[in-house]
């Protein structure tokens, strides 16, 4: 049960973003820019960063939601499972291995990012901007994961829920839906 009173029909992050809409607006905008805006990293690659950080934080809701989004955007539902097992042997580019390693370090603490990790990413083709965005996305998902679990929001267990959520965030992005979320009430 959540630590504060939240609407039953909006589990996970959605209920929190509806609880305080004025703080939600800039968080949503930042996420939309970073995960969907113009970028040399693909949307699928950016969802992998969100996934590996959420997984490291043990945040079930966010991990399932962003795994679903990454699966759709990559057109492959094995990559997320494989990066969760081992980044270095997973079927992503050398550059993405370097960036996912940086993201996994950020999940623990900013100070865990080493010069060696950054050099590896640069040697495999990552630009300064890509390293910047990786650190920023990884940090942002630490915010989300702590926010979602710190208030004990509900994580549905039905896989169908996350499939629908993945469809929603890959189709409509991260800004608040103009019509709100009343149609999710059953």
């Amino acid at each position: 049960m959540p630590h504060i009173s939240l609407p039953d029909h909006l589990p996970g992050i959605t209920g929190l973003l509806e609880y305080r809409k004025d703080s939600a607006a800039p968080i949503r905008t930042l996420t939309q820019i970073l995960l969907r805006g113009e970028n040399s990293l693909s949307t699928g690659e950016r969802e992998l960063i969100a996934t590996i950080v959420s997984h490291g934080n043990g945040c079930k809701f966010c991990t399932a939601a962003h795994t679903s989004a990454a699966d759709i955007l990559l057109g492959d539902n094995t990559v997320c499972d494989l990066i969760k097992l081992d980044i270095l042997t997973s079927p992503v580019s050398q550059k993405m291995k370097g960036l996912l390693k940086i993201a996994a370090a950020v999940q623990k603490s900013g100070k865990h990012v080493t010069t060696d990790m950054v050099n590896f990413a640069k040697e495999t083709g990552a630009t300064d901007m890509e390293i910047h965005d990786t650190v920023l996305i990884a940090s942002l998902f630490c915010l989300y994961n702590k926010y979602v679990d710190g208030l004990a929001t509900v994580a549905p267990t039905d896989p169908e829920f996350y499939k629908n959520l993945g469809d929603r965030i890959t189709s409509f992005g991260y800004e608040r839906l103009p019509q709100g979320y009343d149609d999710l009430k059953k």
Binding site: G110, V135, L136, L143, G150, L151
Partner: peptide, 22 residues
């Protein structure tokens, strides 16, 4: 309670952003 959790989460974000980029 909400704001306390949000502020704590926000600073876990800002701290990582700053230290993660050295």
């Amino acid at each position: 309670i909400h704001d306390s959790v949000l502020i704590a989460s926000m600073f876990c974000f800002f701290n990582r952003y700053i230290d993660g980029l050295g």
